[in-house]
Design a protein around this nucleic acid. Structure first.
Lengths: 196, 196, 196, 196
DNA sequence: CATGAATGAGAGTTCATTCAT
DNA sequence: GATGAATGAACTCTCATTCAT
């Protein structure tokens, strides 16, 4: 099925509406009916474009890869201090953690857990790899500028992983409402202190 | 409903069978029918004991609080080296991570994500708090014995949290099959190197 | 849910079919399945319009308030004899009593008895009040025309109640197959003889 | 199955408990489970004696034929005034009507309506016939003593029926909470005034 | 293309009834 | 006899999915 321009716009519209459903309800409990109702279109109308919530969700994920890396690339281009760049990134992550209820994060975890052999794993893995890569670059950038002193070149990738894994853990805590601004700060501090 | 001894054993039996279903299928997709079939009992028979998968799962969780802390308490009682105690604990966690497909872990995350205002949160939070507490004790124990040198007394609890949050993050990775023995080793190493 | 014209007709169709089920089976023993089968539609199809037999029955009742009072109003407009008007009404009631097996009457009683605090009580009470009112009017009409001689103006409403209560009692007897044409005639006679 | 004395007492016990369930819940919605629970016996234990609520209810009805006629027989034996005897009976009926919520009356109507071809019809019909008979006797007694003046001997049975049918109608009203002490008095008055 | 009525599969739940202990 | 666990039939209800208009 190749889509007309109108069709593409309708898809976008559906994804937008569906996103707000997923944010509100998570992934598993959402039905096609829920999305039909949120979109105010007909059942048949929705099925024209998507035939399951899974399909919709995968589309949301693949479109949703907005650039979180801007802070890094821009920072390095502008010759900013590496620690500052990282701190900015971590602050951005902190904001997200504190606001996690209003993001699609919970739905993503649900999706990811409920599909063992999932195609999306691809998307998430790729996302993970890219993040490791850009953090690694920034760490190397910091090392080369002598702003990061406590990290050996050999350990850069391990540490990039470390950062992301910690953030992943913090997300889980945040989703369980077991998190405070203070706790986040403390944990991010430990990261920074391992660098300088 | 107060149960006879036989009733209690039947409940145990149901929980056992249900556990294997949850390990195999996760949480959300499991139906009462699935459990009935695994148990080889009648629909009504199951409903005598449990009236939803949620109830069953909560019972599994509350019974399942096995003592993971033995390694700590035993180690400290025996006057072992703190770093060794922690390493043992982390090795134990590593085994679990590598074997995560055969544990109820995935189901727990699904459960936890799909019940926003859940009673179980209690169980998980308590579990979390206890783990922080026992790790903190061990860290203090190590500091007092000069086996842990790079950690200030003030930072003990933060670091205990750090360890658990990292393990949480590793679990998520493990569930996404994005983890290798090597990656785990590297991450646990970072933890240990922050101590000595 | 606002219905299309087609939807309204379908509702009518369902009510018709359901009515015949209720006439045949009474109220309490009727299931949604019974109605689905009578209608020759799918389960889901029925649930689109009604979600319980109670709802269906209430709709039947509220639609079913046909005008039994025509005999009175028409009679008075035409200046007929009051006793004749009443006799006509009572004959009409007699016919219904003798044919009660083929009416929804039994189901109504069942419904009414099985819902202690029911909304429908409203419908039945209103119906009762209206009937008292129209009979009272007719009695007054008869008194004013000197056709009814043995009833004081003060007692008009009491006697209107009397008539209806007697008819109610006759219905119960009729439902128990304890009634004959003769018995009805005798009882209605007693009513008439109290008037002239 | 012939019962031991113990068995007979157990049956009585079950009937007592079941009666209170039927008073509370009506007939149709009562399950064997309800009765088992009220009796605090085992399911099997109940089935030993009764195999359906219908059976239990029929037994309650046949045992329950207490003598409502005492007021008549005693009155006539004592040579009391016929009108007074009738008034006493009607007052007794009035009390029952006002207290109908705490009687098994509602359940009886439900039972009677839900079993088209019922064996119990026998019981109810017999009850009806007996009541007609005893009221007729009293009316005749009153006529012979010149206490009842407005009733021809020929009409005695018709009028006895009239009384019972009216009371039946009042019961229905009472079950619908559409009845007041005043309304009952007015209706019973009409009866009495037809006699003197 | 869009609509929404219609379908039917399948999950949940309750009880009458049986039967081993 | 008494018990209550176990069974399974029957019902309710919800959606994914289709299809005539």
């Amino acid at each position: 099925m190749s889509l007309t321009i109108k069709g593409i716009e309708k898809k976008k519209y559906i994804l937008e509406k569906a996103t707000s459903v997923f944010i509100r309800e998570g992934y598993t409990s959402v039905t096609m009916k829920d999305i039909v109702e949120e979109c105010n279109i007909s059942r048949g109308g929705l099925y024209k474009y998507y035939s399951s919530t899974k399909e919709i969700f995968e589309d949301i994920l693949s479109f949703g890869k907005e650039n979180d890396y801007f802070v890094f690339t821009k920072g390095m281009e502008n010759g900013e201090n590496a620690i500052e760049i990282l701190s900015d990134f971590l602050q951005q992550q902190k904001s997200e953690l504190l606001n996690i209820k209003n993001t699609i994060r919970r739905a993503i975890y649900e999706f990811f857990l409920s599909h063992k052999n999932n195609a999306l794993n691809g998307i998430l893995k790729q996302n993970y790899t890219e993040t490791v890569s850009v953090i690694s670059k920034t760490l190397n950038y910091g090392i080369s500028r002598n702003e990061i002193t406590k990290l050996a070149s050999n350990d850069v990738e391990k540490f990039a992983n470390h950062i992301i894994i910690l953030l992943e853990g913090l997300s889980i805590l945040a989703l369980g409402e077991q998190i405070s601004s203070k706790l986040i700060d403390e944990q991010l501090d430990i990261i920074i202190k391992d660098l300088i």
